[in-house]
Amino acid sequence: MSGSKSAQGANGFLYFTGFIGAAVYYIGAAAGFWAGVVGLLKALVWPAFLVYEVFAHLAS
C-alpha cells in the first residue's frame, strides 16, 4: 500500500477537477447532442489523451 489517505484524496480531487475542466471543454466544443455525449465520455479518459500526446511529442 503506497501513500496516505490524504494524498490519495488530493489525487482524486485533482482528477475530478480535470474531469470537470475536460467535460466543459469537450461539451462546449460539441456541435450537437451526441457529440456532447461523446465529449463527456472523452472527459472520463482525458489522462489517456494527455499521456498519448506527451509520448507523441517526445517521439518526434
Rank of each mutant, 00 (worst) to 15 (best):
P47R: 03
A7D: 12
G39R: 00
G28W: 00
F49G: 02
S60K: 08
Y52S: 04
F33E: 07
F19E: 00
G18Y: 01
G18V: 01
G9Q: 15
M1T: 05
V24C: 05
A30T: 01
V45S: 08
A29R: 10
I20D: 03
L44K: 04
A23K: 03
Y15V: 07
Y26L: 03
F16G: 02
S60W: 09
A30D: 04
K5W: 07
S4R: 04
N11F: 15
V45G: 05
P47Q: 07
A35Q: 15
W34A: 15
G21T: 11
V24I: 10
K5G: 09
F13T: 13
K5P: 06
L58Y: 14
A23L: 12
I20P: 02
M1W: 13
L44D: 02
T17P: 06
A31T: 10
G9Y: 14
V51I: 12
L50T: 04
A22N: 02
F19R: 00
G32R: 11
A48E: 10
S6H: 09
G21E: 04
M1F: 14
V54A: 09
V45A: 10
K5V: 03
N11A: 15
A7T: 12
F13L: 15
S2L: 07
A35K: 07
A56Q: 13
M1V: 08
Y26G: 01
A22W: 00
A43W: 00
G32W: 07
F55W: 09
A59P: 03
F33M: 07
S2P: 05
W34G: 10
A48Y: 13
Y52H: 13
L41F: 12
A22I: 01
V45F: 06
S6K: 14
Q8G: 09
A7W: 07
F13A: 15
I20E: 02
A31D: 10
M1Q: 06
L58E: 14
L41Q: 04
V45D: 03
L58P: 01
K42E: 01
P47D: 02
A56F: 14
G9N: 15
S4V: 05
G21R: 05
F49V: 01
H57G: 01
V38E: 10
G12E: 08
F19A: 00
